[in-house]
Nucleic acid binder design. Structure first.
Lengths: 154, 154
DNA sequence: GGTGAAAAGTGGAGCTC
DNA sequence: GAGCTCCACTTTTCACC
């Protein structure tokens, strides 16, 4: 693999300008259109229209604030591999996991486990409680947890 | 555990109003201060000052655009458990992984593996290449991969 | 928290490729 | 037709009080 720019099979490709705008917006999601335009040699209106178009196409899903979980009191993080009963559907599992605000993200995966769940809790005591409750969910058979020591990237 | 609002051991706690503002900003990171103020019965100026304060405290790290990876051509996702050699430090591993734009996130973890790496690639062929290259990194001994089938939450 | 000047956002008209 | 700029108008921001 030489390229890090995967081609888009669905929908027209982004041009160099779009990439520039998105790169800037990922660094500062509240940057003014005029400011972004300076980088791309574009008027503020043109920038806005491009971003509107990207939004309409679904490439841009929205904008959000980036928070520091630790400063919000969420200091413990873990990944839990969930093993389901044979009859458990992804939809049931999703419904089960949605109950927990501590579930940051969850994916169904290939391999031994059925799903991988990313948890955030206040402390290890809180984490223990959440994992216990997840294990008691009807569709869940067993689980295997890894506590996060440090974030290397991301 | 009864509460989902972990207390903050470091720094003053957020009040109800701060939580409201942050909740709204997480839904729309480009919302105007006036619009946010309407929800909290606050003037635009007051909203801005609160957000500035949260920024200064580090609770708000910044703002960003939310993109759809699939529409950008990144259609394959995987988690790779990395097992390191005994002498490999987290710093070395971080340096190794930083080379790959396909590495979305990475954490050192407790358990059998030393690190968990979240990868995004164009397709399975691309993914295979990246995993192969990660396995060849000097500090890496072996790895175990799970391909993401679907995102349940997050 | 309020006020007002400056800046940014918004949408139409008309231009160029 | 798609995409740009220019322009006028509205809204928001931000440095004062």
């Amino acid at each position: 693999m030489t390229t890090h720019r995967p081609s888009e099979l669905g929908g027209a490709a982004l041009d160099e300008t779009d990439r520039l705008l998105l790169e800037h917006l990922s660094r500062d999601g509240r940057a003014s259109y005029a400011e972004i335009g300076l980088l791309a040699n574009l008027s503020a209106t043109a920038v806005r229209r491009r971003i509107d178009r990207l939004r309409a196409r679904g490439v841009v899903r929205g904008f959000t604030v980036v928070l520091d979980p630790a400063l919000l009191g969420w200091r413990t993080e873990a990944f839990v591999e969930v093993y389901c009963r044979a009859r458990t559907s992804p939809e049931e599992l999703m419904a089960s996991l949605r109950q927990f605000p501590e579930v940051v993200a969850a994916w169904t995966v290939t391999g031994d486990a059925d799903a991988l769940v990313h948890l955030r809790a206040a402390d290890t005591r809180h984490l223990e409680g959440v994992i216990e409750r997840i294990r008691k969910e009807p569709g869940v058979q067993r689980s295997r947890s890894s506590v996060v020591l440090s974030q290397l990237i991301g």
